[in-house]
Design a protein around this nucleic acid. Structure first.
Length: 207
DNA sequence: CCAGACGTTGTT
DNA sequence: GTCTGG
DNA sequence: CCAGACGTTGTT
DNA sequence: GTCTGG
């Protein structure tokens, strides 16, 4: 497993939404070492507004992390079976994320992010007990608005995705596999990159 | 009080 | 920066 | 998962 | 033996 990986993210800037690449694994601004991010690829929805590592980003630095699918492993007797999971009828969806800015004592700056996770819905529970939060497109504006201080409203968006909107199938596992897809007329590479239990797949322009 | 943690999952 | 655990 | 703790009060 | 912290 690589120690760090960049993922695409959408966030609200002064001039409007912007797409950026962020290091996956949120590094709080007060962290002494960038290695802190090794343990923060996920944030629990149940506590994300209170945990010291995430609460500051939860207030002002929420983002979307686009994906075409994700993976979870089902524990079997001796092995683990990976499943590819998608949202029905949608080639592209978005995880609820947070981002943060960090600067080392030497001045090295890193922008990083994390994906919020919650309880798995009834369909995914047999595979794994947790799942990333997937937002409805109608909630993107609410989630991204840095001036939104309505914590209850924001937290209410962090629910398991409706189970009848998901589809999944078992896949074979090969680290670093890559395949080409067409999305909205663009040829893209869909990368499958392992990182503990949740894997993100996305979207970088194919060259 | 004050040093040390501050995070998630659970094999890779 | 703030909380917690010893 | 697995190693290590397993207790109380709370400054000097 | 069981819980917890890493």
């Amino acid at each position: 497993m690589r120690t760090s990986q960049e993922v695409p993210a959408i966030r609200q800037a002064e001039a409007g939404r912007e797409a950026v690449l962020l290091r996956w694994g949120l590094i709080p601004y007060w962290a002494k070492d960038e290695k802190f991010g090794y343990h923060t690829i996920n944030a629990r929805a149940e506590t994300v507004d209170r945990k010291p590592a995430f609460r500051s980003a939860f207030k002002r630095r929420r983002c979307l992390i686009p994906a075409t699918g994700f993976y979870e492993w089902k524990k079997l007797n001796r092995h683990k079976q990976p499943y590819h999971i998608r949202v029905k009828d949608r080639e592209l969806f978005a995880f609820a994320g947070l981002w943060e800015h960090w600067r080392s004592p030497e001045g090295k700056a890193i922008e990083s992010c994390t994906i919020i996770v919650t309880d798995a819905n009834e369909v995914l529970k047999p595979i794994h007990d947790r799942m990333p939060v997937i937002l409805d497109p109608g909630d993107y504006d609410t989630w991204l608005d840095p001036d939104n201080r309505d914590v209850d409203r924001l937290r209410s968006l962090l629910r398991p995705y409706p189970p009848n909107r998901m589809e999944f199938w078992p896949v074979s596992w090969k680290a670093g596999s890559l395949h080409m897809i067409r999305l909205r007329g663009l040829q893209l590479a869909e990368a499958v990159i392992p990182a503990r239990c949740t894997v993100l797949f996305l979207l970088s322009p194919y060259r």
